[in-house]
Design a protein around this nucleic acid. Structure first.
Lengths: 344, 344
DNA sequence: CAATTGAATGTAATCGATTACAAGCAGCAT
DNA sequence: ATGCTGCTTGTAATCGATTACATTCAATTG
């Protein structure tokens, strides 16, 4: 039994022995200091220090019927959009002594079965779901599985009663369109996210509504399919270039697509904003430094993550009552990629 | 006791009862199918199906003296550079039935103490460390703490004996410089990463060595301080602009800095590559779509993550012998941001 | 046919912390 | 002095799965 052997690390009984008290007292001194006299507490703490004791989580969790972990379900981990949100989540959760487990829902490997395992409450005490594309039934509790509380963040499942932290996508899209309208644009296109995605739908609604409000044409061939990714922005640009009758301003449903769009236009000698104005959505870091810098709808990603984490904690600790879904505001950030149309 | 109560989910004894066997047999059927007759196995599996049994990890881990989790120590989670690596790690690890826990080492909250908790082996069965800036002693085993095996990925601690998955930073930097030299540049600058960082040091070594090999000047005022971030690239550009005698080609130690650099130059009417050639490092997704598209050193981030994860698994499962540190190759990707100097 | 072997299964100890319950004890009122 | 209250502390059951050890039983061998 060398020093790497887990069995050699001190147990609660070792602390109890050095402190000359029972294990119950040690446990109480550590987790409910009020239940122990000041003197004993000091003795116990000294013994903890001396032995180098660290609680065994498996044992604690088993006894307490919890897991000490929160699972974050991320659609496509490699998308940097989520890193900022994860950061917000992690900052709150590790402060609260929870482990943050991440799982990629797009992972091909027997995804369904594996995710369902994560949903079971002996794997996590709570879930934060960033993927609105999962089948709703896996969150249901129609069967014998005990499910931990879950919070949606960014995306959500339409009609689900679960709590969520979202932004006002309809308003965000409308702000983008209104900005273009105010600049004098009347021929406005839209690069959409992946079909069926809630964000895509809401932003599209906001776009269409704002166009109609301004009495501008809503033309189907000016709504380009995308999937939020850079390459899909490139594809949208190709589609734009292929049109005979082109919009002179385009609202892209993500900054990544906006960058891909502008990049491809540039390759073909089309200038932004001189020939086309472009608005993005998200305000990712590069937006401020792209050439041209990108006008976009800012969403507070770190705050989204933090808020979702705090909400989940409230749900886990407190009762079910006080917690409410939250919709965070967005704002328009005007930069260089938009200007008045060339021929006013 | 409603259906949300954890106590209502089926235990191994419930399965044993429905199957008409002992708990030992159920356990064996599930984890060591070979030790059980085919017939019993089938019966047990049916019972598992019927009851909807899912193993309780806390109990299993307690008994097996493991945690079922791997901790990834990330410096600054919000840096999208790491998302790709995390993705590689997660794909391998969740396939191997390990939980992936993430911890941000830059988290201000009592960082030291908290990270050390993660290093203890009752929190994780292994570590993947992406931060080379941690004090080495926390990995040491000079004290009574039992430490789980750890693997460095990307960064590492100089002189540490821990295994690592890295790329050839010296060669990468040299490739960047050689490329500029071949284009005919003789006045070459370098935007560095954060001081003391291993990557900064190696890439700087590679840069200096390649310049000397080409008999070109190595000028201290052409080495700009940075920290891998976009804004630091902007700052470097400001420093470049402030020089009277400027390099006409610059190798940036990260793509983010290269983008910030180019962006700021563009704001001041300096054109890339016409006035300055720029090379980056990393080949992040935007590199291919920036304006101009960025010449850079490609590093295989997903592969780095996967490799580190597989190495760690080998270390955990097998003995200590066969596993070796790995250095992955990098390649130069030539794009638009570099060209021959204006006045050859 | 008795003895031996090995595969399949069962019994019960075990992992380490938490906590229900019991007990001890000082202080105080009657 | 007796009994009561309330604060500390201890004893031992408990969480749920794994596995060392014991047992059963059929097959094989001399």
């Amino acid at each position: 039994m060398n020093r790497h052997d887990p069995r050699m690390s001190p147990k609660i009984v070792d602390v109890a022995r050095t402190a000359g008290v029972s294990t119950a007292t040690v446990s109480r001194a550590l987790t409910a200091p009020g239940k122990v006299s000041a003197k004993t507490r000091a003795i116990v703490m000294a013994a903890v220090e001396e032995t180098g004791y660290i609680v065994n989580h498996a044992a604690r969790n088993l006894r307490r019927q919890q897991t000490g972990g929160i699972v974050v379900l991320v659609p496509n981990l490699s998308n940097p959009f989520f890193s900022q949100i994860l950061s917000g989540i992690a900052s709150v959760l590790s402060g609260a002594a929870f482990n943050v487990l991440i799982a990629d829902t797009q992972q091909p490997k027997g995804a369904d079965r594996q995710i369902i395992q994560y949903l079971h409450n002996n794997r996590a005490d709570g879930l934060i779901v960033l993927d609105g594309g999962l089948p709703e039934h896996i969150f249901g509790n129609g069967d014998r599985q005990a499910r931990p509380p879950a919070i949606f963040a960014c995306e959500w499942i339409e009609g689900s009663e679960k709590l969520s932290v979202t932004i006002d996508n309809v308003a965000g899209a409308a702000m983008a369109i209104d900005h273009l309208v105010q600049l004098g644009h009347s021929r406005i296109g839209h690069v959409m996210g992946p079909p069926d995605n809630v964000l895509t739908i809401r932003r599209q609604e906001g776009t269409t509504a704002a166009l109609e409000r301004a009495h501008l044409p809503v033309r189907r061939e000016w709504y380009f399919e995308g999937d939020f990714s850079l390459p899909s922005g490139v594809r949208a640009a190709k589609a734009w270039l292929a049109l005979r009758d082109r919009p002179d301003a385009v609202f892209c449903s993500s900054d990544a697509m906006a960058c891909g769009f502008m990049s491809e236009l540039h390759r073909h000698g089309v200038r932004v904003p001189d020939d086309v104005s472009v608005v993005g959505f998200d305000d990712i870091e590069i937006a401020e430094h792209f050439i041209p810098t990108l006008t976009t709808i800012h969403q507070p990603r770190t705050t989204i993550g933090e808020t979702a984490a705090r909400m989940l904690l409230a749900r886990i600790n407190g009762g079910e009552d006080p917690v409410q879904s939250i919709r965070l505001p967005v704002d328009l950030v005007v930069r260089e990629s938009t200007s008045a149309p060339r021929i006013a």
